[in-house]
Design a protein around this nucleic acid. Structure first.
Length: 167
DNA sequence: GGCACGATGTGA
DNA sequence: CACATCGTGCCG
């Protein structure tokens, strides 16, 4: 069963760990492929210096101010698309970065595999015909560790255990 | 294995 | 000019 608004419109720290094990479904070349999510990171509000919304509302971060259930994608290092799911209520910018799916560890690798690009910016996970999430039993065995590649954010953000991975 | 480095485009 | 990354080449 497809996950609906009520799943995403909650605090990212509640949603992110629950994303583990959920099935990412993508329609690609007329076929449907599915991958369980294995690793995610939480980015939480303007106060979180690691969150892109810490710089306020811009063309890029605008979608994070939408209520949960839409996609935030952006290009990093000129070549990799990062896939995020917006969470929380409107005007409370949050997102969960998808860092790994079964068989493809790495946020840049999985988007390349799934052909995810800028055209997915703003896509609604609850209504889209080409990307959505299917429910599954919650994963109980996961670990929470610090987020990757955000040294610039400084403390306390650098140490928050907001990266969730299956074991 | 681990470390250095470069690719490559965009937002502030 | 930094950036929520990744592959390659080198070391020994």
């Amino acid at each position: 069963m497809r996950l609906g608004d009520n799943f995403f419109i909650r605090d990212v720290l509640d949603v992110a760990p629950e994303l583990l094990g959920k099935i990412l479904v993508i329609k690609k070349d007329d076929s449907i492929i599915q991958f369980p999510i294995t690793e995610v990171e939480a980015y939480r509000g303007e106060a979180d210096r690691a969150c892109h919304a810490s710089k306020g509302r811009t063309a890029r971060t605008e979608i994070m101010y939408h209520q949960g259930g839409v996609i935030y994608v952006y290009l990093i290092y000129g070549m990799y698309w990062m896939l995020n799911f917006v969470t929380g209520v409107a005007n409370q910018p949050q997102a969960a970065l998808i860092r790994g799916i079964e068989g493809f560890d790495g946020p840049g690798k999985l988007t390349k595999q799934l052909s995810i690009n800028k055209s997915f910016y703003g896509e609604n996970l609850c209504h889209s015909q080409r990307i959505w999430l299917e429910d599954s039993k919650s994963v109980k065995d996961f670990i929470a560790t610090p987020r990757i590649g955000i040294d610039y954010a400084g403390e306390p953000w650098i140490s928050k255990p907001w990266r969730f991975s299956t074991t």
